[in-house]
């Protein structure tokens, strides 16, 4: 898939060599579990400074793709993280380049601050004792997600949305240039979803690459800079939302619905899914 071609104006402005330098690039990717290949991608580039949405039906391989790119499940093909081959990287070296947050998250018996401090694992020395820089990063990450005042609360005392934000602070504290988030909005109410989208935009604006998998079509088209459409076991399309929205047949093939721009002042989403 040579998705960042000339026909995708917005994406091509920011893509280019950066994707292969500090983002994630994958070639000849075949990922799955054991012998069963769930998803193939000839060429996939995910770059910093933008929010990329991975869209597709249930079971199309969104999570598998993210896990493979994060190095958590083995895959065929080559994945470059910040220009280095994924296979040659140790676990902690990998975690310094890419942070991954799975969809289902435990509710550990610990405070928010402790949870966020675990994000520093790969940044700490062998003793795994936090230094001043680690503490600063934890405080900064809590402030980034707006959870500074809840730092001493226990995870079990928080709402689902707050817990998601706490975990997000944890991966922010990891300080990896690329963040891979598997369906981060699943358990969130609309208010928290809006907060999450704004937060992801801020992270991208600060130079990180944010990749989210989701099946919330309207939210993805509204909040992402770039979309990757999965279907039929491969990448069927990619590009800026406005470009893809203009190809209803493709979108319908991947997602079962098309999207239409929504011109309502103050609307939460700029697009709406149409049957």
């Amino acid at each position: 898939m040579s998705g960042n071609g000339a026909g995708v104006p917005k994406a091509s402005d920011t893509l280019g060599p950066d994707a292969f330098g500090t983002g994630i690039a994958a070639t000849g990717l075949a990922c799955g579990y054991g012998e069963k290949v769930v998803l193939r991608a000839d060429l996939l580039a995910l770059s910093r400074g933008m929010v990329t949405g991975i869209l597709g039906r249930n079971g199309c391989g969104k999570s598998t793709l993210l896990r493979s790119l994060a190095g958590l499940v083995p895959c065929q093909g080559e994945v470059l993280l910040g220009g280095s081959g994924l296979r040659g990287l140790g676990h902690q070296e990998r975690a310094r380049r890419v942070a991954f947050l799975p969809q289902s998250l435990a509710v550990p018996d610990m405070t928010v601050a402790t949870l966020v401090s675990h994000g520093r694992y790969a940044r700490m020395g062998r003793s795994k004792v936090m230094g001043a820089a680690d503490r600063e990063a934890v405080v900064a990450a809590l402030a980034t997600v707006g959870m500074g005042d809840l730092a001493d609360r226990r995870m079990a005392e928080l709402s689902g949305g707050q817990r998601q934000l706490a975990y997000l602070a944890m991966v922010v504290a990891q300080d990896a240039p690329m963040l891979l988030l598997d369906e981060p909005g699943t358990y969130l109410d609309l208010e928290h979803q809006v907060r999450l989208a704004a937060l992801l935009r801020r992270l991208a604006a600060a130079g990180r690459g944010v990749v989210v998998s989701t099946h919330d079509v309207a939210a993805a088209f509204s909040a992402c800079d770039r979309l990757v459409l999965l279907g039929e076991g491969r990448v069927l399309g990619e590009g800026a939302p406005e470009v893809l929205a203009a190809q209803p047949a493709l979108v319908r093939r991947c997602l079962g619905v098309a999207v239409a721009p929504l011109d309502v002042p103050g609307a939460v989403h700029r697009y709406v899914a149409v049957g």
């Binding site: 990998r94 799975p102 694992y121 991966v171």
Partner: peptide, 21 residues
């Protein structure tokens, strides 16, 4: 091992994402 053991309560996948083998 204890530094890594701290991450296990978060679940295997989350801990792996944080850099734990």
């Amino acid at each position: 091992l204890s530094g890594g053991l701290e991450l296990l309560p978060l679940g295997d996948e989350t801990a792996a994402g944080l850099g734990l083998d």
